[in-house]
Write a protein that binds this DNA or RNA. Sequence first.
DNA 1: AGCCCTGTTATATT
DNA 2: GAATATAACAGGGC
Length: 279
Amino acid sequence: MPELPEVETVKEALKEKLFTKSRIVKDIEIRYSGIIHDIGIEKFRKTIINQELTNIKRYGKYLFFQFEANSIISHLRMEGKYRFYEKTDDYILTKHDHIIFYFTDESVLIYNDTRKFGTMEVTRINEEMELNSVAKLGVEANDKAKLNVQYLVSKIKNPNKRIKDFLLDQNNLAGLGNIYVDEVLFASKVHPEKKVGTITKQKWQQIIDNSIEILDTAIENKGSTVKSFSISQDQEGNFQHELKVYGRKNEECVNCSTKIKKIKVGSRGTHYCPKCQRK
DNA sequence: AGCCCTGTTATATT
DNA sequence: GAATATAACAGGGC
């Protein structure tokens, strides 16, 4: 159930474990086919089996597993998780293990997803960004080089759209989800329901600066571990201790001691300080 | 027990 | 188009 910092942490953890040696796919077991999108499961298996894993990348909340000729584009949605075992013998099957990659050296990569929302798609190598679901993604929410006020303002189609909805739209900005968007708006002192058309250039700049700062700090802390979610079997993030508003309903604002409010914006639970973040 | 909630997003409906 | 509802699904909390 990760946002950009958690997916980045997953990617780094997987690279560290998997690229200690060559990993060639021997077989893929698909126990729940709904994860595989836009391609039959036999074709999916056939496409990837016998290929060596060459790289793992990330854009926004998407993971790219690159093989010699093709890539798997993986989205974890709410609860997708990977875990890796060097030896098949160590592999313990659990309830929501849906996709299992067996490598020729007896190591195993398992995709687990309690709610089965996650997706996997296949593209040709280096054509990941051309796939429909990824093609329209906006600039990444921590991209110092490309993210600027002019870019964001150019993405406004309806000035009456609420800022939270705007920032959650991955086609405007890629990587922010429900937790970090609340954090960014709190740090920027912007009410989550403020209309994008009423936001000043200075405020846009603050939103950008805070987005970069918060996401990069979260990455340094290896993301947030909330409830049952952890990055992998032997790693937990620490950023949940740094969250200033998310999950702090009725607690005191760290700036002004006002009680943090929780409302609905769209259908998402939304935390904010009614004094620091005025409409 | 039943209803609400949950770090997501694509699609259908109004 | 744009806002809202729904769908995909499981489990935890009250």
